[in-house]
């Protein structure tokens, strides 16, 4: 890291915390925002501390444990068959249904599959 030797303590603004909260669909009071602002600053300070370490010779770790490739065969197993659900089961956990469908509040813009 080029700036590793110049750690700067991070202070988040209330607006930044509010934006992150909105993205996470969390409704926070002013008091909670202020609280989160300090807690997040603590997390970022720890990151700054880590940036100060010399990690040039360390392989990036993408996953703990060193395990890889848990792959399933492309076939419906008997085991899996027991977990298959249908519209009735879905209807029991959905707030509102219409036939086999789940009813959700009108989606703005009518966008289908926005993120995929």
């Amino acid at each position: 890291m080029s700036d590793a030797d110049q750690p700067t303590p991070h202070q988040l603004s209330s607006a930044e915390v509010r934006k992150v909260a909105t993205l996470a669909r969390l409704a926070l009071s002013d008091e909670q925002i202020e609280n989160a602002r300090h807690q997040l600053a603590g997390v970022l300070a720890l990151m700054d501390q880590l940036r100060g370490l010399d990690l040039a010779d360390v392989e990036p770790m993408t996953h703990p444990g060193g395990q890889v490739n848990r792959l399933d065969d492309d076939a419906p197993s008997a085991d899996h068959q027991r977990t298959v659900l249908g519209p009735e089961a879905l209807g029991r956990i959905a707030p509102m249904t219409d036939g086999p469908f789940v009813v959700i509040p009108k989606v703005i813009g009518g966008d289908d599959g926005g993120g995929a």
């Binding site: 509102m96 469908f101 009813v103 009108k106």
Partner: peptide
């Protein structure tokens, strides 16, 4: 329909 229907 009132809302939007979801099929998963």
């Amino acid at each position: 329909i009132e809302g939007t229907l979801a099929d998963y």
